[in-house]
């Protein structure tokens, strides 16, 4: 939609002012997130740009909030380096052995090793312990919702499922019910059965919250899945388990992974339910941020926020790559 050469002055003015309005709205969307990134490098404990920062004076910037976030306890560097090297080595060996040329998994492995190395042996620090708790809860919750969710999505995509709509409504309900209600109900019920304030209580509640995302993404992927492939596999003598792992799973993997990412983010970002179902021992990163925001707001929160923004950018890119791969597999052009 360009501007035609015969456009009148009024049309021109409208065209450009519309663009400006849209620009302002996009600015409204992005600016708050972008602004806190430079603010997190503030050398002062202020929440606004100091004159030094506006002059781009290096003295106005510092990494001290990051230092406070990552902590100086223990031997962070040793842990970091050893963890990264081990992660790199393990994944490199694994992929050399598998004969893959893809370097991405090796980078992911090194990053994982880095994180585990950093987390190793951390106890009682203000920000790292919550991060460690988040990293202990989210993967387990994701694993539960992805494994059960994928099976159920395959079941739901069969031709004849009795009560399909009712089952679907139940499985999607954790996404519909407001979090505060889920949190209240889980708090009451989990106190009754002794799960309130335990690690498994939090994991189970987060897994339940992640289920709808897995169900939605995997069923959407299965819509494009050619059923004759499983029949062909069965015809060639494969049993259902082999068919699942060798034929169906590789094809729906992008959907499963993106469902898993959604579930992971849900758990990693979740604060309302963990606030009620968890106890101090399960304090997660969002919980720590929430407490920090409500009680005494310290600029370290901005450093934490910047780290989380980086993580979400990485996840967004991963999802986009997965979507393209999935569309390529289904024979569409990536859009």
């Amino acid at each position: 939609m360009g501007l035609p050469p015969y456009a009148t002055t009024g049309q021109r003015i409208w065209y450009y002012s519309f663009r400006v309005i849209c620009g302002l709205i996009l600015f409204f969307l992005i600016a708050p997130i972008i602004t806190i990134i430079p603010l997190s490098f503030n050398a002062q404990d202020f929440f606004t740009f100091t004159p030094e920062m506006l002059r781009f004076d290096p003295a106005g910037y510092s990494l001290k909030h990051y230092q406070a976030f990552f902590g100086t306890e223990g031997a962070p560097w040793t842990g970091l380096i050893v963890g990264a090297l081990i992660g790199l080595a393990v994944f490199a060996a694994l992929f050399y052995w598998r004969g893959s040329k893809n370097v991405l998994p090796i980078i992911v492995g090194a990053a994982l090793g880095l994180v585990i190395g950093k987390m190793w042996g951390i106890e009682g620090t203000e920000w790292m312990t919550p991060l460690k708790n988040s990293l202990k809860i989210a993967p387990v919750a994701t694993l539960i919702s992805v494994s059960l969710g994928t099976l159920a999505a395959i079941g739901l995509s069969q031709a004849h499922v009795p009560f399909r709509r009712a089952i679907m409504a139940i499985l999607i309900s954790p996404m519909i019910v407001p979090l505060i209600i889920s949190a209240a109900g889980m708090y009451f019920f989990y106190s009754r059965i002794g799960l309130q304030g335990t690690y498994w209580g939090v994991v189970l509640s987060h897994a339940a919250l992640g289920v709808p995302f897995v169900i939605i993404t995997v069923t959407a992927t299965l819509v494009g899945f050619d059923k004759s492939l499983t029949r062909a596999a069965a015809n060639l003598g494969a049993n259902p388990v082999t068919t699942f792992f060798r034929v169906q799973m590789p094809l729906i993997l992008p959907g499963v992974i993106s469902g898993g990412l959604f579930a992971f983010i849900t758990s990693f970002d979740e604060v309302v339910v963990v606030l009620f179902v968890g106890s101090v021992g399960q304090q997660t990163l969002p919980w720590q941020m929430f407490t920090g925001l409500r009680e005494q707001i310290s600029p370290t929160i901005l450093a934490a926020a910047t780290v989380l923004i980086s993580i979400s950018v990485v996840l967004l890119v991963t999802l986009e790559l997965l979507r393209r791969r999935s569309e390529r597999l289904r024979g569409m052009t990536p859009g």
């Binding site: 059960l148 099976l151 089952i167 109900g185």
Partner: peptide
């Protein structure tokens, strides 16, 4: 047909049971 229905249902059952216990029961408790 019955067997197919049963198989689909068995695939769904673990998740359904999980969601009912960890989510629906708390809502009803409330």
């Amino acid at each position: 047909l019955r067997r197919e229905k049963l198989r689909a249902f068995l695939l769904i059952l673990p998740l359904l049971a999980f969601v009912v216990i960890s989510f629906i029961a708390p809502i009803f408790d409330m």
